[in-house]
Design a protein around this nucleic acid. Sequence first.
RNA 1: GGAGAAAUGGCAGAGUGGUCGAUUGCGGCGGUCUUGAAAACCGUUGUUCGGGCGACUGAACCGGGGGUUCGAAUCCCUCUUUCUCCGCCA
Length: 424
Amino acid sequence: MLTINLLREQSSTVIDRLRIKNFDATDIVNHVLDLDRRRRELQVESDAVQAELNNLSKVIGSMMKEGRKEDTEAAKKGISIMKEKQKLLSENFDMVSEELQKELIRLPNLPHPAVAPGKTPEDNVIVRSGGRLPELQPDALPHWDLIKKYDIIDFDLGIKITGAGFPVYKGKGARLQRALINFFLDEGGKAGYREIEPPILVNEDSGFGTGQLPDKEGQMYHVGIDNLYMIPTAEVPITNIYRDVILDAADLPVRNVGYTPCFRREAGSWGAHVRGLNRLHQFDKVEIVQIAHPDTSYESLEEMVKHVESLLVKLELPYRIVRLCGGDMSFTSAMTYDFEVYSAAQQRWLEVSSTSNFEAFQANRLKCRFREKGAKQTTLCHTLNGSALALPRIVAALLENNQTPQGVKMPAVLVPYTGFEMIS
RNA sequence: GGAGAAAUGGCAGAGUGGUCGAUUGCGGCGGUCUUGAAAACCGUUGUUCGGGCGACUGAACCGGGGGUUCGAAUCCCUCUUUCUCCGCCA
């Protein structure tokens, strides 16, 4: 959520910048400013009455000590009208505060000035690409046929056990999953990230902190009996480690990496292009999260982009990095790089990572702050995260791009992890 | 799941209705002393929202929410969490 200060001081900038995201903020901003004024008026009034009440209570206290019973009773009577007034004021204050909060969280994060305007993925900017596009045999198979041929991932079994979108990985398929997870975690560790194994169910506060709640409720599986949500990404529990935390500036940036399964209901998003591993309800992902100083958060973003890119290079996959245009960016992001790998048999680019700087947007919800050495004041941190990486589409690309008449060849870097060179 | 105990500032730990935002110790920060350091001594040390150009000043916060009262860290209700004992269990 944007800070109220930003709106007070630069409301026109906010409106202008949100146009890049194709969001007309005029009405909300005006409403927020109006509510903010009313809220402050009410606070001044309510605080004054409360101060008087506090004072009178003290007076009554000392009168009782002196044994002036009649004066005490008289004072008590006078106080009740004031209490009514105070009750009304503070109720109004609470109402206005709540409405202000509700309006404030409707505003998306401002895109960074470097973000291009645009409406669709067509308008995204390709930053760079790498790797070589493979030349496949004419009879090359898409991954959904390959997994059947080698019997390594079983969708029907998943349907039997759970439902569509919950595949069962078998034999070398399961082994490949474990290999990728370990490889990604190890690489994260080498890059200075602390490994985290977080809970995969989170409470409402956590869902709010990273921005899934209240709006994207329908995208998460909800365990109603305990009011917990299954995480759609490790970003949620790992970033929430820093909810209500004040860090030392010297400790920034904080780097964490974690593997979790991820659960997404994907309500209404089924259709073309979601065959096989392209879209699932449950999938595995390794996520990197940084909490950064505002002055250096874009250096952190660059560092994360380089890290994700290095993974794709090591896996020998053809990839491209795109910077999302305003219209394609998420509600919470200030700048996002998507990573796509080329899936040769499908002849499509598949998104395998989304790496973003949220600046202070999440931190404001999380109340994640830092303090400069010796300073009294606290400042909101910047939060960032990125997939490093999401497994299913990596697996799809590995299978399709590396297929040979003898089987699917594993990239060299994975062999120590898989224990085999070929799926055949 | 059953029975009991508890939750206080960075940590430890007082405080059972009235100048308590909270004694004290440790830690942190600043200073005196010292060639330097340690020790000792002195001072300082939470968060949030407001008002004021400023000096300064108001309100809220003792796990969360509600209640009683002129007044609540302190009493009542409720939720959550932790600990001990019993049961169950990977």
